[in-house]
Amino acid sequence: MSVWPEGYARQVLSEVDSTMLEAARQAPGLAGPKWILAETQTAARGRRGRAWVNPVGNFSATLVMPVSDKPETRALRSFVAALALFDALVAVSGRVDALALKWPNDVLLAGGKVAGILLESLGDHLAIGIGVNLVAAPALDDLEAHAVPPVSVLSVLGVEVGQEVLLDHLAIAYARHELQFQTYGFAPVRADWLNRAARLGETVTARMADRSVTGRFETIDPEGRIVLSTDQGRQAIAAADIFF
């Protein structure tokens, strides 16, 4: 494996309330990017404030980095992080065929959700939180109808992956994709993401707070919006939960 990426700091905590909260606390004092990994979280959360179930042995880390981009450009780093996470999981499992990316920010393994990504702006910094079910998946009790069921790397592939091992691969992959993003913009990131997209060309439902839209998943546009072909024409949607 290559060496840890130059310019990226690293911290491993035995326990913390949330790596995202820790990133917010440390951000004002950081001049460069830093990965924060927690072996255990006591108050983890996912998108829209939802609780993130985090059994011991699963992966929880946040990359906090100074940024000067506009908000819409910052948001595109969810795709950068997804590509890096895809590459890291391939590296530790040796399996590329079972993995796919689900818009806007999930990674699927054998059709189940194995990882999620959460972005938060912290003034002049951006926090990218990543959770991966390495050893255990949450129970299905609170799963919404037609939602993707959670799975773990261990349950699907029978592969045991250490938290710091995954972090090493993830940090290296992220640095590579971030450099591409900074050098060439979103276009190559978009193309790479679409090559790994789940259900591209198939019918999906985008569920928003006030409405749902069902249509054929055509692409993601240059702003990162999912584009659906519906009976009412093409619709570009910036934020939604996607159901298959």
Rank of each mutant, 00 (worst) to 15 (best):
G131M: 09
A24I: 02
Y184P: 01
I220L: 03
A206E: 02
G94F: 10
A27Q: 04
R45G: 15
A197Y: 01
A137H: 10
L37N: 05
L134F: 01
Y184L: 15
L83H: 07
V16M: 14
I128V: 15
S155M: 09
M20N: 15
E178W: 15
F217A: 07
P55R: 04
H125V: 03
V67E: 08
D97L: 12
D231R: 13
L228Q: 02
A236T: 01
A206N: 04
I117H: 06
A197Q: 05
D69S: 11
D69Q: 07
V204S: 03
V153Y: 12
R196Q: 04
S155T: 12
R45C: 02
A84K: 00
L157G: 11
T205F: 00
G32Q: 13
A110H: 08
A209Q: 09
N133G: 04
T42P: 15
G215H: 12
F79C: 06
D168F: 01
N195V: 00
G111F: 04
T73V: 15
Y184W: 11
W103V: 10
L109Y: 11
W193E: 07
D124C: 06
G224D: 15
E218C: 10
A209K: 10
L21S: 14
A24Q: 15
V153N: 05
M20H: 15
R48C: 02
T73G: 03
M20I: 12
G201S: 00
I172M: 13
L89T: 02
E6R: 07
M65W: 12
R95N: 13
A98R: 09
D87S: 08
T62I: 00
V114S: 03
F243I: 07
V135E: 14
Y8H: 09
F243S: 12
S68D: 15
V80M: 07
